[in-house]
Design a protein around this nucleic acid. Structure first.
Ligand SMILES: [Zn+2]
Length: 233
DNA sequence: CGAATTTGACCTGCGC
DNA sequence: GCGCAGGTCAAATTCG
């Protein structure tokens, strides 16, 4: 079994939060275009710079989270699949559904994904991400590069559905459908299908950090060229 | 200049 | 057999 998606590098985000006294020289300064008061080191600029860093970090954090969600969903699906394969005859207990509401997003994964597997085989994974920003239906950066190849409007949802394909590798059977929630405009339902054949997701690699701390990117290229023979009969 | 996005046309499976 | 709904393609256009 391919276990490449498991050896993902640990969470090594260099967050800007907290007391960051040192500023990375790679931060671009836009002070040159701010001819306001003659003050050179006005607190406002500092705040703006900090806010910019925050925004950047937020961006990275967001895509990181999306990537982790994707990985988690994939893992969950695999687990369910292997479980179903192992014990085909599931006892089907009443399954005490403990409903805990009022939580963050991505809470329904452990619940809906299983149901999804039982109900719909072809779909590999489905995850919902909360996206409030002005994203009509753009390329969600979840760690892979997607190229939109279609957009249709379904009669179920007034919002159009976008079709994406992975363009990271020349041949990647992975497809993705993105559609907003029917009622909640801030919910994006992404349906992933297929599995990536190229190693790594560019979202985990961090930009060149000044300090040469850990440069051993451990290029454990798991080729895993063998296509999975789709054990499911 | 190349690649990605947009957008209408075209194809296909399914229900009636 | 026809119509509908969803999915894909491909040319034109835009972005970098
Ligand atoms: Zn891919």
């Amino acid at each position: 079994m391919g276990s490449s998606w498991f050896n993902q590098t640990p969470i090594n985000l260099d967050l800007n939060i907290g007391p960051q006294h040192r500023r990375n020289p790679l931060m671009k300064e836009e002070t040159g275009s701010l001819p306001l008061a003659g003050k050179t080191s006005s607190p406002r600029e500092e705040l703006e710079a900090k806010l910019e860093r925050m925004s950047e970090e937020n961006e990275r954090l967001k895509e990181k989270l999306a990537s982790m969600q994707a990985s988690y969903a994939l893992l969950q699906n695999k687990l369910v699949d292997v479980m179903a394969t192992s014990s085909s005859e599931v006892a089907g207990p009443p399954s005490p559904t403990k409903k805990r509401k009022g939580d963050d997003s991505a809470e329904m994964s452990d619940d809906s994904c299983k149901r999804l597997r039982e109900e719909a085989r072809p779909m590999i994974s489905k995850l919902c991400v909360r996206t409030d920003p002005s994203d009509p239906s753009l390329v969600v950066k979840d760690g892979y590069q997607w190229r939109k190849y279609g957009q249709k409007v379904t009669k179920d949802n007034p919002c159009p559905r976008a079709y994406f394909r992975c363009s990271f590798a020349p041949a990647c059977p992975v497809k993705k459908k993105v559609q907003r929630s029917a009622e909640d405009r801030s919910m994006l339902v992404a349906t992933y299908e297929g599995e990536h054949t190229h190693p790594g997701s560019s979202s985990q690699i961090e930009p060149p950090n000044g300090d040469g701390l850990n440069l051993s990117s451990a290029a454990s290229a798991h080729p895993s060229p063998q296509v999975r023979p789709s054990p499911s009969t």
